[in-house]
Amino acid sequence: MAVKLQPVQVLYCPVCSMPAEYCEFSPEFEKCKSWLIKNAPDLYPQLVQEAADKAAEKLDGLTVGGEEDGVKGEGSSSEPKKEDEVKRLPGGKVKKKVTFEDMQEKPEVVVEKIVRNKRKCVTIIKGLDMFGIKLSEASKKLGKKFASGASVVKGPTDKEQIDVQGDIMYDIVEFITDTWKSVPESAIYFIEDGRKVSANA
């Protein structure tokens, strides 16, 4: 067969990254649903049906409008019991969202370590400017304290951050709180394995 094959375009779900048809096996199926209803209605007809039902119910005033189209998953797969457990999640999800937004507004310092070449690393400090600290001065101080290169770098989304050579996670917190009294320890966060961890924990 010398015929040139054409690449097939596959619809991937942005939530769980799998092809849309496998969303139902994703642990985050609940979150996928709203996207699925919009983008792949023919794959999960029952979902669309449910959503429509729900909207109708709401209009009738039969349900209390607590969860905003959290999309109930009744009998969409063969395991209604499991679905039941998942159903309670939307409440939690909503809560999470709120706290996340709160955090965005609050000024905070985020410290992240990036490893390069296996043993060498760079510590990135973001958000110092939110406390009214001049980054150029801060980088000088950091460089002096840790005897290494420290520079102000334009990070993603145009926010400026300080890159310090070397792993300085161990006493960065102390240094920041000592040098700039306006930064509380509770506002400093580490990023570990992609998760945000409070420094004073």
Binding site: L5, P7, V8
Partner: peptide
């Protein structure tokens, strides 16, 4: 092939 590649050329 990785799955992403296989999805593009499922016949291989």
């Amino acid at each position: 092939p990785t799955l992403r590649l296989l999805h593009q050329y499922p016949g291989i």
